[in-house]
């Protein structure tokens, strides 16, 4: 069994405040995982450390066997943040081209057009995403995260700001990615989404309090702070 994402004693503290207690975790290739927890429970910290955007205080994270942040790990991992970031002098289409090319994808146009159509962004392809509304920025970020090849998709609060068609489009894209063999780890407060995943991880005050099937637990109780 190939492990797409693993952590070994991975922990983070900000001064005297632990954000994530040392955590051991293994997510097999192709698994669809939801990460839940109250605000400040450590979800974003865990995902950002996995993406290589935060330095762990202890332990390490590995992406398909490679240390997080390494070139091989970056090649396999796509990161969709809850705070989309764009160049302020590139159109959405130019963003898609750049991200595709920097990941070595030559024939990217068809995939880009397909993504934009799914996300109802076709008419905005030549606009600058920094001028978009919150929801449109989120959709643009989704397109950019999915335009490139990946084995593991880490997603932080993807539904925030999305309208109902946007949510449905995202769910379809996530399903497509899972069907393509990608591993998905999605941090969310959207509890309705939890029913679609194979595995549920719940964090509370930086500690893992549940790891199992979403069907076996009262998810609402899990996301309450201690």
């Amino acid at each position: 069994m190939t492990i797409a994402f693993s952590t070994h004693r991975l922990g983070k503290d900000y001064g005297d405040r632990p954000a994530l207690e040392p955590l051991d975790l293994e997510v097999p290739q192709g698994q669809h995982v939801a990460l839940v927890g109250h605000n400040g429970s450590g979800k974003t910290t865990l995902l950002r450390m996995a993406a290589g955007l935060l330095d762990p205080s202890v332990g390490e994270a590995r992406i398909v066997g490679h240390v997080s942040g390494s070139r091989e790990a970056r090649r396999a991992l796509s990161w969709l943040s809850d705070t989309p970031t764009f160049y302020d002098d590139l159109s959405l289409w130019e963003h898609l081209e750049f991200v595709s090319r920097v990941h070595g994808v030559e024939a990217w146009e068809a995939r880009a057009e397909s993504l934009l159509a799914t996300l109802h962004l076709t008419t905005r392809r030549d606009d600058i995403p920094t001028t978009f509304s919150r929801g449109l920025r989120q959709k643009a970020a989704i397109a950019i995260a999915l335009i490139r090849p990946f084995q593991l998709l880490l997603v932080d609060e993807p539904f925030v700001g999305l309208d109902q068609p946007g949510k449905e489009a995202l769910l379809q894209l996530l399903d497509d990615a899972a069907a393509g063999g990608a591993t998905l780890v999605v941090a969310t407060h959207e509890l309705a989404f939890v029913g679609r995943v194979q595995r549920l991880l719940a964090l509370r005050d930086g500690a893992l309090v549940y790891d199992g099937s979403p069907a076996d637990v009262d998810v609402h109780a899990l996301v309450l702070p201690a």
Binding site: S78, L115, L146, R148, P149, L173, D176
Partner: peptide
Amino acid sequence: MTDATDATPATPDATA
């Protein structure tokens, strides 16, 4: 309407 196959991300192969 988007083609589902078209929208599926490719897994990087060794050559790439």
